[in-house]
Amino acid sequence: MKSPSARWLYFAPLAVLLGASALCAWTLSVFLTGPVISQPELRPQRRVAEDALVLAGSGSNLPLTRLLAEAWGRRVYLHESIGSRGGVRAVRDGAIDLGLISRPLREEEQQGLVVWPYARVAVVIASGSSVPEQDFDEAGLAQLYSGVRRTWPDGTALRVVQRELGDSSHDAVERHWLRFAEASHEAYRRQRWRVVYADASMRAALLSERGSVGLFDQGAVRIEQLPLRIHRVEGVRPSPETLESGAYPFSKDLSMLSVGPPSDLARDFLGFIYSDRGRDLTRRAGYLPLERPAAERP
C-alpha cells in the first residue's frame, strides 16, 4: 500500500508524457497546416467598359498591337505584359477579349481556343549602341553564353542578359543552333548570367548596362526607336525582307487568341489587322504580316 503523498509520483511521468504529446501535436498542427483552397464561387470579371476591346498577353506582342490599336481608332484597353501563358488563361477565364501570345500553343492549351497569327518578328541579337556591330555565327554566340568570350573588341566587359527558360525568343534561336542551346542551358544551370523574365526588363538591361547583350525583338526596337545595336547573323542583317526570304533564320510568330468565335468588336479589330492597311502598318513597323487562318477566311 503506497502512502497518499507518494501516489502523485506515479502520475507525474504520465502527465509529462501527455503534456509532451500535446505539445508535439500542437507544434505539428500549427506549422504543417497549409493553405485552404476555397472552391471558387465567382469568376474574375472584366472590369473595363463593354464598348472597349481588352487585350493582354505576351510582352512581345505589345508594341505592334498598340500600334495597330491606335490605327484602328476604337477603344482598346491593352494591359501590360502578363506573358503568353497569362494571356491564354485570361482569355479562357473571360477576363479579356483577345489573348496575345508569341509562341505556339501547347497541346494542353489548345482546347477551345482559336489562334489568330498576325505577324512574324525577327529575333535579334541586340546590345547597347556603344558596342561595335558584330557578325555572329553559332559558335560565336555559344562562346558568349558559355563565358568563353568575356569582352567586346573595344575591351568593354561583356554582360549577357538571359530570359527565363521557355522564353519564345530563346526558343526561336535554340531551334536552329543546338550548340547555343547547350551553352544557354548550361548558363542557366550555373546561373552564370543575369536572367530577366520580361521584355521590359530586357529592354531596360540592354539600354542601361554597358556591354550588355541579349535576344530581343526587332519590331520593338524599330517601333520604340530604341538606341540598340542589332548584330548580323552569319552575315545577314535582320529585316522583314530577309525574314520573308528565309535568309535570316530566327523568328517568332505573334498571334491573338479567342475562345471560340471572337466577339463582334474583336472580329472587327482582327479584320483591321488582316486588312491591307493593317498589313502595311505591320510591315512598316519591321514585322512580317501573316495571313488570316484558312479556316477563318470569309
Binding site: 494591359h79 497569362g86 488563361r89 536572367v195 523574365y197
Partner: peptide, 29 residues
C-alpha cells in the same frame, strides 16, 4: 501595373523567382 490581371501574370514571375532567386522555396501557392 497589370491592373487587375495580376493573377494571370503572377505565375510567370513566381516561377522566375523560384528558379533564380528563391532556391529554398520548394512549393509556392
Amino acid at each position: 501595373s497589370q491592373d487587375g490581371l495580376w493573377r494571370y501574370g503572377a505565375p510567370k514571375l513566381v516561377e522566375h523567382l523560384q528558379a533564380f532567386h528563391l532556391g529554398s522555396a520548394e512549393r509556392i501557392r
